[in-house]
Design a protein around this nucleic acid. Structure first.
Lengths: 247, 247
DNA sequence: ACCTGAACACCGTTCAAGT
DNA sequence: ACCTGAACACCGTTCAAGT
């Protein structure tokens, strides 16, 4: 069996670094998540299967089910572990800090697009995910955004960052899963836009250049800036519940 | 073999409705996509596998590869087929029309959350996806949004709708894949927010009620309205390319 | 209580061989 | 050119049996 030697920084959540792992480590939730994250870093999320992780830990897949409910829950735990690496950054006005925090979040997740997609399903509720939400909410309140708009807005901004990571990451990262061919997908869009028939798609044809303009970072920062300004400026909506719908 | 009898409206893209399909239909891209969509409607996206579709068409999985590149490409084609059902709706001011179009898009996709997640990877470039973009772009231009903001904004709004569908759909729809337990995921978030420690998560603890307030439709409409206002109000960003980065 | 061998019921994709 | 049988290399999850 070939064992890759990779140096991995011990995260605060992992009790021991991988290097001094004993030959047959005791199974634990932390060890499972650690191994899973390491496999993801070196081989991509597609390879993080129950069987592969079990193999890494010298056991059978059935053993993992003592500590992890299923594959989705494992992915969710991996995401929260990763979010622990997100340190406060950005200075200056609060809007600048919000933008930078969201960009950091998106860039971090872009490295693992599969995980970003999983985040859209699982609604991470781990401590690090909640910490990010709290920090963001705090910045919005600092900026005197009304609490109801700030709360809904923080949710919206994180959703947007997650979506950008899922999409952007798919475009830029080498995904080991051959079923996904991002370059083809993106090139196909660009070709389709440039070939837009002015009869059927008049607006797109007329503005193909602006639609395709801009680099990734500029568009990302613009998106966060635009959404942030909209959040502060838009009153929340509350329709009274109908009789059939009193939750 | 048990064959479910389901009435399916013949879409404009499908040459024949399923009811008059001959016992052994000739293979074709359209037929494959039709069968795939029907399996998704009745059994969920998780069941739309190459093998399952092939079985439905009385052939082996290898045969499908003549017409479809891989599973991801099949999913992408299914999504575009579905987008063909999206009819213009909404009246009144252009902002109202934009909101309604996006809500329709999101609700449609919410019925198939797996497909929404796929859309985040594949960047649909089919005719119906481009048609939606064009219609949205036209509405924004009607509202005198500057072309560059309108183009980037249409992209942003569709991304947001896709993400909302992926997330919202996961929460509401019965996914036949037992690995995904959405109710548990959402309940976990709600419980975690209510239990937020005021020491560690001060803002979240102080505003748990507003964070959890609001029904789905209200929050969805608010999100689109906020983003729309931000798009109109925020200048696009263009940083000059550096020497290392002249694409 | 924790762990696991073995099994069940599946996957996507390829390719040589047929028609 | 189009189609396919068979194979390759995998999956997640369960459960009875062990320690």
């Amino acid at each position: 069996m070939f064992v890759t030697m990779v140096f991995v920084n011990a995260s605060e959540s992992s009790p021991r670094s991988r290097r001094d792992r004993p030959a047959k480590p005791p199974l634990s939730r932390d060890w499972i998540i650690d191994s899973a994250v390491e496999i993801m870093r070196t081989e991509g999320l597609a390879k993080v299967t129950m069987r592969r992780v079990a193999q890494e830990l010298d056991t059978g897949p059935a053993s993992l089910y003592v500590y992890v409910a299923n594959t989705a829950e494992l992915h969710s735990a991996m995401l929260d572990r990763l979010l622990g690496d997100l340190r406060p950054s950005g200075s200056g006005p609060w809007t600048e800090q919000v933008e930078q925090l969201l960009i950091d979040y998106t860039v971090l997740l872009s490295g693992y697009p599969g995980l970003a997609r999983a985040a859209l399903m699982i609604r991470p509720s781990g401590e690090h995910a909640l910490g990010l939400f709290d920090r963001l909410l705090g910045l919005l309140l600092d900026g005197d955004v009304a609490p109801d708009r700030a709360a809904w807005g923080a949710d919206l901004l994180i959703l947007l960052g997650t979506a950008e990571a899922a999409e952007h990451g798919a475009r830029d990262t080498a995904d080991p899963n051959p079923a996904v061919d991002p370059s083809h997908g993106w090139a196909a869009v660009e070709a389709a836009v440039r070939a837009a028939d002015p009869g059927r798609l008049p607006h797109l044809a007329a503005h193909a250049d602006v639609a395709l303009a801009g680099n990734g970072p500029d568009r990302l920062r613009w998106a966060f800036r635009a959404v942030l300004s909209g959040i502060a400026a838009t009153a929340t909506i509350t329709t009274p519940p109908t009789q059939e719908d009193h939750r």
